[in-house]
Amino acid sequence: MARPAFLDRIPPTSPTVMRRLAILTVIGQAGIAVTGSVVRVTGSGLGCPTWPQCFPDSLVPTPHPEVAALTQWIEFSNRLLTFVLVVATGLAFLAAVNTRPRRRRLTWLALAQPLGVVAQAVIGGFVVLAGLVWWSVAIHFMVSMFFVWMAVQLVDAAGDGDGPATRVVPGAVRGLIATSSVVLVALLAAGTFVTASGPHAGDAKTPRLGLGVQATAQLHSDILFAYLGLVVGIGFALAATGASRRMWRRYTALVVLVIAQGALGGIQYALGVPEVLVSFHVLGAGLVTIGAAFLWSGTTERTHPTDAVAPTADLVGTGRA
């Protein structure tokens, strides 16, 4: 990707600034999913019944006999956050373009973030126009988690070089982590089924998935136990292969997040799915996705050109071997 000429007059982006902007994109991508859940549990999904306008004749909330002002502003505020996220991800992209030497992988990962926000805005518009039908909301959430995952890859890319990927764990361990990531996708999807069957539709008139909360929650918990089994297996595999401290830190963080999220889900079900716990559970889903993404990205490293001849002892000393 060609470097814009005006950037030649700007000091190159430091690795610290690039990493901070990348972390900001992770927070933003996960955060907007949480605010979306607030829209749903407050019944504000159709507070602005059209898109991109709030009402056919107004871009912003306006007095309406059938839609409460608070409901309008909750939905409208969530839409405004999209523009904030566009700015944040756009800055991350410009910072990536301004790194020297230019790093292709970093640039493309950074570009994916603002494009993803725009794509999510379009999907969100479809969700509204479709009347919040459950499967459209599920797609909206799953795409959001995908871009959370990609934002984590951007964070790691901010510190990596642009050289070839080098495995830091055996292929079998990497394959086990990949398998757990696929099961995590199924776990997140099953969670959307529970939501689709439950009482929090985003609007009182929105039809629910007819499978029932009990059946979908059972499916969700079954997949959770499968995922937990894989996570435990990853721990044994890391111990058997002498994994680095870096991998152990990421693995430990994921274990803590998964256990906390599982406990929260059980409490949420036992209490009848109260509104506030729904949003916390969505936050937990985002955090587990972040933890799993960091574990996956930790299985490889990409060196800088100057690191290509670095002795192994140097790598061991940094805890990255």
Rank of each mutant, 00 (worst) to 15 (best):
R208H: 11
V273C: 00
T50N: 07
V152Y: 06
P4Y: 01
V232T: 02
L21F: 06
I259D: 00
V118T: 09
M247Q: 14
Y251I: 09
S181D: 00
V39E: 03
D162W: 00
M1A: 11
P207F: 15
R9K: 14
S77N: 04
D203A: 02
C48W: 10
P311W: 07
V282R: 07
F225Y: 14
V127T: 15
L21H: 03
V38H: 02
G233K: 02
V194C: 10
D156F: 08
P4V: 01
F126P: 00
L254R: 08
G212T: 03
V122W: 10
L109G: 04
A196F: 06
E75C: 08
P15M: 00
M150I: 14
V278I: 08
T107S: 15
T206Y: 01
L85T: 05
L315Q: 13
G125V: 13
G43L: 03
M247H: 12
T192N: 04
L129I: 12
A243C: 10
V276Q: 08
A239N: 14
F193Q: 14
R103F: 11
A121E: 07
I223D: 06
V117N: 00
A263W: 09
M18T: 06
V152R: 11
D222Y: 08
P101Q: 00
A285G: 15
A165R: 10
V255C: 14
C54G: 09
V194T: 11
A112E: 01
Q113C: 05
G233L: 03
A215F: 13
V232F: 09
F225I: 08
V133M: 12
S197N: 04
V122A: 11
G125Q: 14
R246W: 09
F236K: 05
P199F: 00
R20P: 01
T216N: 03
I23Q: 11
T42E: 08
R3D: 01
W149T: 14
Q53S: 14
H304R: 15
P207K: 12
T241F: 11
A138I: 04
D222K: 01
V143T: 13
A119N: 04
P65V: 03
L59H: 06
I290V: 15
V41Q: 03
V316A: 14
P56F: 09
F126Q: 12
Q153H: 08
F76K: 02
A172M: 08
P65S: 05
D57L: 10
M247K: 04
A172R: 10
